[in-house]
């Protein structure tokens, strides 16, 4: 099976990709249980994906917290509800903005990397070489990468949430003498760790599908060097779209389940 061209406005291609991604998902699950797990490659992929996006997510998170605080503070102050600010920022970042924004950054950085890497391995026949030496390239390349993105994204999002929280504190600190301790206790006053649960589940799915889609686009990329650029591009476009789709479904589900 070879992809014709990545995610153009082409309905036939679109359904072809949906079917391909579904097959890829089942193959991942099957492979996870049937084959020897490539532990070393998995660890190295976790390290790489984490390392690649740590700084990007960290900086974005601090700015996110800072900007939200600077914009919302005057509004809340006008209502005399300034004390609610830490709590409000924290809930909005943790439950909605953090997962989506950090996942999009992750898709841009890590997803495009996986797409380009696997696609260049396809073009230079490295995947074929693994296949003919009976070494199961899917297990070595895809299972490890998908597992790594699935595990690393929630960790990175948690890290980003904490930094956004810190950024918000800096933003508030510029206007008032609030201590970190007070800020902290206000942020968590109406917050329960169970609130993080749906958001975390969501990020696990984000991470999984970023990994699956990026791997799929790379693994079945077209021939020639232009295939590499197209695969990286398609990986980012398709996984960004899927992030919003999952988010939409997740919002509905959380709504239904909490009432």
């Amino acid at each position: 099976m070879e992809r014709k061209s990545p995610l153009d406005l082409n309905l036939e291609q679109f359904f072809f990709d949906i079917a391909g991604i579904a097959t890829f998902t089942f193959r991942y699950i099957g492979s996870l249980f049937r084959n020897r797990f490539e532990g070393r490659e998995f660890i190295s992929q976790c390290y790489r994906t984490g390392y690649q996006s740590l700084l990007l997510i960290g900086i974005t998170a601090i700015i996110l917290g800072l900007v939200l605080t600077i914009q919302i503070r005057p509004i809340l102050a006008g209502l005399g509800a300034e004390a609610w600010l830490p709590n409000m920022i924290f809930i909005s970042v943790v439950t909605e903005m953090g997962p989506v924004i950090f996942a999009l950054l992750f898709a841009g950085k890590v997803g495009s990397g996986i797409g380009a890497e696997l696609s260049s391995m396809r073009v230079t026949e490295q995947i074929d070489a693994m296949e003919v030496s009976a070494t199961n390239p899917f297990n070595y390349l895809v299972v490890t990468r998908v597992s790594a993105t699935t595990i690393m994204l929630p960790i990175l999002v948690f890290f980003g949430d904490m930094l956004a929280f810190f950024g918000s504190f800096i933003g508030l600190r510029a206007y008032s003498e609030i201590s970190f301790k007070l800020f902290y206790s206000r942020a968590f006053s109406e917050f329960y760790f169970s609130d993080m649960f749906p958001a975390t589940i969501k990020t696990i799915f984000f991470g999984f599908f970023i990994g699956i889609i990026a791997s799929y686009m790379g693994y079945y990329s077209g021939r020639g060097t232009e295939g590499v650029g197209k695969a990286a591009n398609a990986a980012v476009v398709a996984s960004s779209l899927v992030i919003f789709l999952i988010d939409l479904v997740a919002v509905q589900l959380t709504d239904i389940l909490t009432f």
Partner: peptide, 19 residues
Amino acid sequence: LNRIRTRIGYLFQEGALYD
């Protein structure tokens, strides 16, 4: 198929080394 493949060595056009 894999048993047969291990009995065959395949040298690809550009070497196909894992980079």
